[in-house]
């Protein structure tokens, strides 16, 4: 199904799959959906997560130690699809595990599992020819990252190549919750809107209701990742419950989050 945001702003929740194990990930994801998540990013753990800060680095290490693979995550996606018909599912991975599986095989299996979109962290749009073809053939939405340092022409290329939404990175840096969000985010979204009509989700650093509301004013959706992963890390044994509470606290107090027509 196409990736779209029916609520304003939409909530995208990222989890590192397999941390501490896939069964917990399944429960956590279902709890997040129940609490209000519109799209789930299924993070694939990688040995060298160069774009990630310490929280997701640690989660990746734990998930890899538990033997988590891309193939297993696609199986989990299929299971989740059965249980959550209208939630967007995006596979979020570095390129190498996908290359190892085979670009075409990956896209086919993902499609079959009911995945909606894919975001490959370290695949720039300039190198994405083969990927975009395989994605198109399998009716999957490619989501690309836009950074505050991207010049306008590049933003247009990124937006044109993306389907579903563009992921606007709120600041120069790696993943990780922050107390202050820089103004980079709003400027970036404005620049994107000047070159594209695509929906824009803003992520990196968002961890509380106030930030969610502030970003939700100018973005179509807000991505919350490290804060969720850290919640999982800190609530051993009751991860799903804790994430459900966290998500409710995030979107609960938001006044304007009614369903779009």
């Amino acid at each position: 199904m196409p990736l779209s945001f029916y609520k304003k702003p939409g909530l995208v929740v990222y989890v590192t799959c397999g941390d501490p194990d896939l069964a917990t990930t399944r429960d956590v994801v279902l709890a997040a959906i129940e609490a209000g998540a519109d799209v789930i990013e299924l993070g694939v753990p990688f040995s060298d997560p160069v774009a990630d800060g310490p929280v997701i680095q640690r989660a990746s290490e734990r998930a890899l130690a538990a033997g988590t693979t891309l193939a297993q995550i696609l199986t989990l996606a299929a299971e989740l699809r059965q249980q959550a018909q209208s939630t967007g599912l995006v596979v979020f991975s570095y390129l190498n595990p996908i290359l190892r599986m085979g670009m075409e095989k990956f896209c086919r299996v993902a499609r079959h599992a009911g995945v909606d979109g894919v975001l490959v962290t370290d695949l720039p749009v300039e190198e994405a020819g083969e990927y975009l073809l395989a994605m198109k053939e399998n009716d999957l939405a490619p989501v690309f990252l836009a950074a505050p340092t991207s010049p306008d022409e590049r933003l247009k290329r990124i937006a044109d190549a993306s389907r579903g939404f563009v992921y606007a990175v709120s600041r120069t840096g790696v993943t990780g919750a922050r107390q202050q969000l820089a103004d980079d985010a709003e400027k970036l979204v404005r620049r994107l809107r000047r070159v594209s009509k695509s929906a824009v989700a803003v992520g990196f650093g968002i961890s509380n209701a106030a930030q969610f509301a502030a970003v939700g004013k100018f973005a179509d959706a807000v991505v919350v990742g490290s804060a969720i992963v850290e919640t999982i890390e800190q609530h051993c044994g009751r991860e799903a419950e804790a994430v459900g509470d966290f998500v409710r606290a995030l979107v609960g107090p938001h006044p304007g989050r009614e369903t779009r027509g």
Partner: peptide, 21 residues
């Protein structure tokens, strides 16, 4: 080693069957 992507480069990389370095 097999062709793979690590740290911005596409080259031969020592990796496991799942593409972990």
């Amino acid at each position: 080693g097999l062709p793979g992507v690590l740290q911005g480069t596409f080259s031969y990389v020592l990796q496991d069957a799942a593409g972990q370095i």
